[in-house]
């Protein structure tokens, strides 16, 4: 938890060296540091939701049990989609860093589309579950399941919004190589959401769940 000591920059804005923000105390960009600090905090948020689910996964009462209702092949496909969106995200960043605006736009759009595909899959999954009798109020298991995956879905959706904002920004000509850090930071968020899903996919879906 203790950050390193180096202190290369004077913190006041008086001198040219300072005003840039390079040579911040840690030598790191404030924005990126902020995002990482935030992601550290998010670990506790998802940890809480995942633990809640794990505590409740066998408490399905008379409703459908997780082991009966999960459609592993379907979820595998949508997990794969989300995983690949991380690749396209990183390609978007790499294109922008090279100054390749065209490819940057293409990959940003692809990432947003893959994210939307994932969300679409989740909507489909939810409606199927509801049709099969697993409503939000059916059991502690169902509430915990929908809340956990719903929170993740909201995070993905916010990520899509950010990607679309970046894309609009790019189309207006303002997303240039100099601003690649913005893309990188959105990317960090996006990959984090992906990493959370890697966890959820294994622990919630693939590890055998209780059946009724």
């Amino acid at each position: 938890m203790r950050p390193p000591r180096p202190l290369r920059r004077p913190p006041l804005a008086d001198t040219a060296a300072v005003s840039h923000g390079h040579g911040t105390g840690t030598g790191l960009s404030d924005n990126k540091l902020l995002m990482w600090v935030f992601l550290g905090s998010e670990c506790l948020l998802f940890g809480g939701l995942i633990s809640t689910y794990l505590i409740y996964r066998s408490r399905f009462g008379d409703g459908p049990a997780p082991g009966d209702i999960f459609d592993i092949p379907f979820t595998s496909v949508s997990s794969f989609v989300l995983l690949m969106s991380s690749l396209t995200m990183v390609l978007a960043l790499s294109a922008l860093q090279r100054g390749d605006i065209r490819n940057n736009r293409i990959w940003l759009l692809t990432t947003a589309l893959l994210g939307s595909l994932f969300i679409g899959g989740q909507v489909y999954e939810f409606t199927t579950f509801v049709r099969e009798g697993l409503g939000y109020s059916t059991s502690p298991f169902s509430s915990a399941f929908f809340t956990l995956t719903g929170f993740h879905g909201v995070h993905v959706s916010l990520g899509i919004l950010m990607l679309m904002s970046l894309l609009i920004s790019s189309l207006r000509g303002t997303l240039t190589t100099e601003r690649s850090e913005t893309v990188e930071i959105v990317g960090l968020y996006w990959h984090f959401v992906d990493v959370v899903w890697i966890f959820i996919f294994t622990v919630i879906y693939l590890v055998p769940s209780p059946t009724s």
């Binding site: 203790r2 000591r5 202190l7 840690t26 790191l28 404030d30």
Partner: peptide, 10 residues
């Protein structure tokens, strides 16, 4: 982390 005065280590 980023804005301490010059010389101010943690």
């Amino acid at each position: 982390l980023n804005m301490r005065a010059p010389g101010m280590t943690l």
